[in-house]
């Protein structure tokens, strides 16, 4: 008996799970780095987030959806867990991490129908939920002195410092900002996964090389941030931070490489992706400059997530279209 089926008779070797695993591999450098810097607390927090995300997805698909195939097998819930924990400060109580995971998976992902149906990036929804519910806990950062030794006092993120000083009427030359080198290597205050630019960029390069993502979103997010903040910096360097500080802090790298590129919540076409990325970059800088929060990546991505269906109305360039 011969099988008869319509063409094509050939399929790519990749699948959803492999793509998700690529993302997880790309997150390893940043993960290792967070453990080096924050010690076991990073490991425990990330594990908590991952286990709760996977559990919630499993529970919902098994007992609410009554699915036979469990969607957790595609590994996307693990990514949500890792990304969520990467966006949290190391001092956050673990029960809050669990609540964040519940919101991320239960509300932002599964209530829309699971992977591919959600509109908003689940990890970001979880994070923003925590941010508005527990603002104090979510903005308390340990000050990193040297790798592995965290003193008990709290340190602010570079962007937090800038915001505070400008609010209190100082100019940038009057405050003590971390050096560029420290920012690159992660010797600054911040969430678990957002602080080392190098580790995140290595992950990003891996994603590009494995064709897991295309360059369009990361480049347009970071490029538009750089250009806009650069213009502001040139106009008034006393009140506006150096553009390099903008793209190297406040989760810009994490957001541009790992969050904004989430398949389900980003546009389909290359042009759409560039528009989406520019939107995120511009909104982030506007929030940082004029908003109440020192950093605006999460909000910017969520706002742009909301208009993805609109962006998807832009058709790709068609062969032989009437000119």
């Amino acid at each position: 008996m011969l099988t008869v089926s319509p063409s094509p008779h050939y399929q790519t070797d990749t699948n959803t799970r492999k793509l998700m695993c690529n993302v997880l591999i790309a997150l390893i450098p940043a993960f290792v780095f967070s453990i080096v810097v924050f010690g076991v607390s990073a490991l425990i927090s990330t594990l908590t987030a991952v286990i709760s995300c996977v559990f919630f997805e499993f529970a919902i698909s098994k007992w609410l959806f009554k699915d036979e195939e469990y969607s957790v097998k595609d590994c996307s819930a693990i990514i949500t867990g890792v990304l969520l924990s990467f966006n949290l400060p190391n001092t956050l109580p673990l029960w809050m991490v669990v609540i964040g995971s519940l919101v991320a998976i239960g509300i932002a992902k599964m209530s829309f129908g699971g992977l591919g149906c959600n509109i908003f990036n689940p990890a970001l929804v979880g994070r923003v939920f925590l941010l508005v519910s527990f603002p104090a806990d979510m903005t308390t950062w340990s000050k990193v002195q040297d790798y592995g030794t965290i003193d008990g006092t709290t340190g602010a993120t570079p962007l937090g410092l800038i915001k505070e000083s400008i609010m209190s009427g100082k100019t940038l030359s009057q405050i003590d900002l971390p050096s560029m080198q420290d920012m690159f290597l992660g010797n600054i205050g911040g969430s678990f996964g957002e602080i080392s630019v190098i580790a995140l960029v290595i992950g990003g390069i891996y994603l590009l090389c494995t064709r897991t993502i295309t360059w369009h979103i990361p480049v347009s997010v970071l490029g538009s941030m750089f250009i806009l903040s650069g213009i502001m910096f040139v106009v008034n360097p006393e009140l506006n931070a150096n553009p390099l500080i903008h793209i190297c802090s406040g989760g810009a790298m994490l957001g541009a490489i790992f969050m904004a590129t989430d398949y389900s919540t980003s546009p389909m076409t290359s042009l759409g992706k560039i528009i989406f990325g520019i939107g995120i970059g511009v909104i982030t800088i506007i929030i940082r400059k004029f908003g109440a929060y020192p950093e605006g990546m999460s909000f910017a991505i969520l706002i742009m997530n909301a208009i993805v269906p609109l962006i998807n109305k832009i058709k790709p360039h068609r062969y032989g279209a009437k000119k």
Partner: peptide, 24 residues
């Protein structure tokens, strides 16, 4: 010859990028 089992569309846009006619 085995066709892989289909799963949820993850809206990755690969089909759009692949189409030589610029369709969706």
């Amino acid at each position: 010859a085995h066709r892989h089992k289909e799963s949820n569309c993850i809206r990755c846009g690969r089909c759009v990028d692949a189409c030589p006619m610029g369709l969706e």
